[in-house]
Design a protein around this nucleic acid. Structure first.
Length: 507
RNA sequence: GCCGCGUUGGUCAAUCGGCUAAGACGCCUCCCUUUCACGGAGGAAUGACGGGUUCGAUUCCCGUACGUGGUACCA
């Protein structure tokens, strides 16, 4: 068997959502599993939808996910160019369109947008809400099938704008084998005569995928389920142009659903979870769609959770490194039904990865977050120790700020209500006296602090437990965080005493 | 409307004809913990519906319902 070559072919129209990343992932895992190449090809054939920065954004997302293409417009390859707009410049698509016409599989269509609109509105009925440009109608339209040859010549000579449409057979069954779904059958007469080449000379997706997959020697083509209905067009094109034996193996991936049907970028804002890999700001509307990266996800967790959304190893293992995914992945184990995205489970994956990975792997990201919130970290070793102390309390990287900022800044507000009801003059006196004892402590470490605390509590006949919570509130501000003596040990004697003094005035 | 794809707990899902239907997330209870977590032990919760095929159907087939996608000179 020839070397496996797969491709991810996004259209740079803005954002890269969960489903897109999962498609990339499955492509990548499959390629790497079989020692093949993963190619990124940019499908920028619709110039009206060009979005500034969208292409770079896609590559940034892939990089963050740890998915490096073997060939792409950025790092090149032997099958370039990798942007369809550039391929069009080379006249690649045009020749195949001409060949199809010559062989009688396609035709010129001269209908203007207005004429198409007219055809649709005239044929529209309750029984047929969306009339197609198909075999039932094509002879009534303005094209090289309905016109006389010399009329066509004249129109062409006069540089009349035209598109090339595929001539779908009237009554044929097209079937192909989908790796995930098995045999898929379609009746050609039910599919419309899709435009292959647009009036601006650009190919549509339909022509471009087939031609490029052939030229780039793609062996396996994976894409979303939404492509299933037009698959017969692609199969036919393969048959007409290059032969079915050269056609890649297809796999149509299930959709990722949101809480209410198909996952949309709006769901993010609506239900409070990210849908894009990284933050994306639409340059036209300035609208920001939140990304998993900025939300505080680890890339390891992100690809892990996406991989498991629609696929499982058939074992009970749920946590996979990228290498383990590559080793275990198989398309046959991809579920054919759509999967509803569950943000709670996604967060669980991240929490697991925070515990699993060494702090050094992601420390920088938390440091950046602290920086942006006004805390500058100078001592990396100390920072690492603190992160280790609080990491099992965090599900997102952004949770660390709440869980650890009190190590750097005294809490702004204290949960005094947690203390006041049980506060007493005795307890107040305990802390006043304890400050003196603390100031006399030779060794400032957790054990010494705890011993001193307990000794004085016993001496004053107060249960240490009743004093611990107030002490915690003094240092942390709330009822959370690691063992309080550890906190005291880390923030130092002076700071500890300051916080006790400050709080004593409030209780 | 027509066509395609799909349908196991709230969610992700195992099962490839033998099921007293795994596991995970979430939820609840308890233990651990003189905070919050982590961890541990339990619990509630599932085969859309109707027909076949079969000794036996969650598993195979057919209908229906429902969901979802497509029906563009968008991908």
């Amino acid at each position: 068997m020839s070397k496996v070559r797969v491709r991810f072919a996004p259209s740079p129209t803005g954002g890269l959502h969960l489903g897109g990343v999962r498609t990339v992932l499955y492509n990548y895992l499959f390629a790497k599993k079989h020692g093949g190449d993963f190619i990124v090809r940019i499908e920028d054939t619709d110039q009206t939808r060009f979005v500034e920065g969208a292409e770079q954004y896609i590559f940034d997302c892939l990089k963050w996910c740890g998915i490096e293409p073997d060939e792409s417009p950025l790092n090149g390859g032997n099958f370039g160019p990798y942007r369809q707009s550039e391929r069009k410049e080379q006249g690649i698509y045009n020749q195949y369109a001409e060949q199809l016409i010559k062989d009688g599989y396609a035709y010129y269509a001269f209908d203007t947008p207005e004429e198409l609109e007219k055809m649709r509105s005239e044929n529209k009925s309750e029984k047929n809400p969306s009339p197609q440009y198909d075999h039932t109608i094509r002879l009534k339209m303005k094209n090289s099938l309905s016109l006389l040859p010399n009329e066509v010549e004249q129109l062409l000579a006069a540089s009349t704008r035209y598109v090339v449409r595929i001539k779908m057979p009237e009554n044929e069954i097209i079937s192909f084998d989908d790796i995930i779904r098995g045999e898929i059958k379609n009746e050609t007469g039910l599919v419309d005569d899709k435009v292959l080449l647009k009036a601006d000379g650009m190919p549509t997706y339909h022509l471009a995928v087939v031609v490029d997959d052939y030229l780039m020697q793609i062996t396996h083509a994976f894409r979303g389920e939404e492509w299933l209905p037009s698959a017969p067009v692609h199969v036919l094109l393969w048959k007409y142009l290059f032969g079915l034996s050269k056609m890649p193996k297809w796999a149509h991936l299930p959709l990722i659903l949101g809480p209410s049907g198909k996952l949309s970028k709006r769901d993010g804002a609506k239900y409070g979870f990210p849908v894009f890999a990284m933050n994306w700001t639409d340059p036209k509307t300035n609208e920001l769609i939140e990304g998993f990266k900025e939300k505080g996800f680890l890339p390891e967790a992100f690809i892990n959770l996406l991989a498991l959304l629609g696929w499982n190893a058939g074992t009970e293992q749920e946590l996979f490194t990228k290498e383990e995914l590559i080793e275990n992945f198989s398309l046959e184990r991809v579920h054919s039904a759509g999967a509803k995205f569950d943000y709670e489970k996604a967060k669980w994956f991240n929490a697991e990865w925070i515990k699993k990975l060494a702090v050094g792997k992601w420390q920088w990201a938390v440091k950046e977050d602290f920086n942006s919130k006004g805390i500058t970290i100078n001592d990396n070793a100390k920072f690492e120790m603190i992160l280790n102390l609080v990491k099992e309390r965090c599900t997102l990287l952004t949770d660390f700020y709440v869980q650890a900022s009190f190590f750097y800044n005294a809490p702004e507000t204290l949960d005094a209500d947690a203390v006041k009801p049980k506060w007493s003059a005795d307890k107040n006196q305990f802390f006043v006296d304890w400050i003196v004892a603390l100031n006399g402590l030779k060794n400032w470490d957790a054990v010494s602090i705890e011993n001193s605390f307990k000794e004085l509590a016993i001496e004053k006949a107060i249960k240490p437990g009743e004093l611990q919570l107030p002490f915690r509130i003094m240092l942390v501000g709330g009822k959370f965080g690691p063992p309080v003596v550890d906190i005291a040990a880390i923030i130092g004697k002076k700071e500890t005493v300051n916080r006790i003094n400050y709080a004593l005035n409030l209780f």
